[in-house]
């Protein structure tokens, strides 16, 4: 047993898992408030990263300003997607809604390939992020710490927003029952648009963070696929579940890599293990750890 390697992978898993958790939160936010499964979540993330990178490298904006502009851009983008593509499909069967986001995802994928190119590009070193600090004998890159802190901040803001603000309350009410919310004077249309805007913004932030940690490329969209095991594990409509599921999947991935490298020697277990877990969860506990069980009335 190589304990230090195991421990290092555990920490990596936690940090990556937190990021999965953040993206899973965005996913759950859209599902919970608008009953749409967003298969394009990964592309949202990549779009945020590309836009920020383009603003920093081509427009020569300072990072902070570029970050703000990216947030604004992503919010507008989310609202546009909601109003133009998703709104006409309200009330359509679930397969149509799933397919329209899949269509959006492959459209965005190829468009981004065209505009931003196929190569991975690195962010300029704005925070000295490639430095390594040593914490309790572990070597951790500053970028990883940064992503950990940012993930925690995003989660805290989410909690604050839903618990203590008027809009957050309105969104919770809409998620609970659209008709009741509407009868109490909440604009469901606005709430839907806001859910997409917030989700797109936060995905954009996650994309920028992952872009700083690794580098920006279109393959980052795989995070959008990794989100599925996480949200199913946590329960599709639970924000807490999304975070917990994300962390578990992140750790599990790294543990699978460890087991693979040490004993099994299968190779590629890292990417595929979450999907085996996904199938098993769906067989034994389809509503996940924290999800509400769907009770159907006849």
């Amino acid at each position: 047993m190589k304990w230090d390697l195991l421990f290092q992978l555990l920490v990596n898993g936690l940090i990556v898992g937190m990021l999965y958790g953040v993206v899973a939160m965005c996913f759950v936010l859209i599902y919970k408030s608008t009953q749409v499964v967003n298969f394009a979540q990964g592309e949202f993330l990549v779009l945020g990263a590309w836009v920020c990178l383009a603003l920093v490298t081509q427009m020569q904006l300072p990072f902070f300003l570029a970050f703000i502009f990216t947030l604004v851009f992503m919010a507008i983008f989310g609202i546009v997607v909601q109003t133009v593509i998703l709104r006409p499909l309200i009330g359509e069967p679930i397969i149509s809604v799933i397919m329209v986001t899949i269509g959006l995802s492959i459209f965005m994928q190829s468009l981004m390939n065209w505009i931003f190119g196929n190569d991975a590009k690195r962010f300029p070193d704005v925070f000295g992020t490639s430095d390594v600090v040593s914490i309790m004998g572990l070597n951790v890159e500053v970028a990883y710490l940064l992503s950990l802190v940012l993930s925690l901040v995003i989660m805290a803001v989410f909690f604050w927003f839903f618990r203590f603000t008027r809009h957050g309350l309105a969104m919770r009410a809409t998620a609970f029952d659209q008709q009741i919310a509407q009868s109490l004077g909440i604009s469901v249309k606005q709430t839907f648009a806001m859910a997409w805007a917030i989700s797109a913004m936060v995905s954009g932030v996650a994309g920028i963070v992952i872009g700083i940690v690794n580098s920006v490329s279109n393959s980052l969209a795989f995070v959008g696929i990794k989100v599925f095991p996480a949200v199913i594990l946590g329960g599709l409509d639970s924000i807490v579940g999304a975070v917990v599921g994300g962390i578990i999947i992140g750790v599990l991935e790294n543990m699978a890599e460890y087991a693979d490298g040490q004993w099994l020697k299968i190779g590629n277990l890292y990417t595929i293990a979450p999907f085996y877990v996904l199938i098993i969860i769906l067989m034994i506990k389809p509503y996940g750890l924290f999800g509400t069980k769907d009770i159907e009335r006849i």
Partner: peptide
């Protein structure tokens, strides 16, 4: 890229 884009766009437009 237009090839793949056209499939995505066709899915979206047909569904709407």
């Amino acid at each position: 890229y237009v090839k793949q884009m056209s499939i995505g766009a066709a899915i979206i437009l047909f569904l709407i």
